[in-house]
Amino acid sequence: MSGHSFPILPTGHLLAIEGLEPPHITALLDLAESYALLNRQGKTQRDLLKGRTLINLFFEDSTRTRTSFELAGKRLGADIVNMSVSTSSVNKGETLLDTAATLNAMNTDLLVIRHAQSGAPALLAQKVDAAVINAGDGMHEHPTQALLDALTIRRHKGRLEGLVVAICGDITHSRVARSNIHLLSAMGARLRVIGPPTLIPAECARLGVEVHHDMRAGLDGADVVMMLRLQRERMNAGLVPSPREFFRFFGLDAAKLRAAKPDAIVMHPGPMNRGIEIDSAVADDPQRSVIGEQVEMGVAVRMAVLDVLARDLRRNA
């Protein structure tokens, strides 16, 4: 499809955004853009991954991401197996490497993994021959989410460079935030994070972002407002006193959104907690919310990633 002279994912895996260079990111987004177009035209490329086995290995529950990878694989013609391993049955991660050995014996080509522990996909990548795609690991990274977010932004704003992007909420525990920070700052956007100090990780500014604790100041002049999901267990851990206090100061509603640019878009990786981090009126506003389009771009981005990694498999075969 695209004639790049360099390998787009030089490690043969997609474990993290950190470390990817802008030309690699642009190439992935361009390819995803073309898949988005094909998807809208209802065209498929069922020969591209024909005979390839893709395993979705999910150690954490996920409907959206797993389905998205499944659709992407199917549209490219891969054989797909979904394996869900309930976290409760995982005995201190031992099954991770046991599973790796099993998957290796089955000659898996592409392995999509989600795990509650940071670094689990990297560990797996050392032990399997398959190309490993990180579908979210602990508080570390969620690379395909950042790619689909960037594609969605680019389609609306025509560029990434120079945009002011505000990421709001629980930054500490968010792999989505980390991947987006790495990707968007590599592409020249200006990043801000907004949240209470209890949910901003240590030395966050050293990741190249402005840190704000006040929504209006943080959203001032923003082109993109990215909300994050607040997990209930953060409240149990005492990091947030109550949902109503969080919503009052850090939830996105129409009044706070007025600080952003008039044409600012609102994003959320889903699933949303309406009335906690985002008001339904904003989430459902067709003029502002691009949440539905994020889901659509998710499939296109995952097709692009699978395509690129499968090319490497062909090269090495």
Binding site: E18, S118, G138, M139, H140, E141, P201, A202, R206
Partner: peptide
Amino acid sequence: TEGELATRLGLPGIP
């Protein structure tokens, strides 16, 4: 140890 590296790696930190 809590700090930039732990933040990047997404690891729970100890100050």
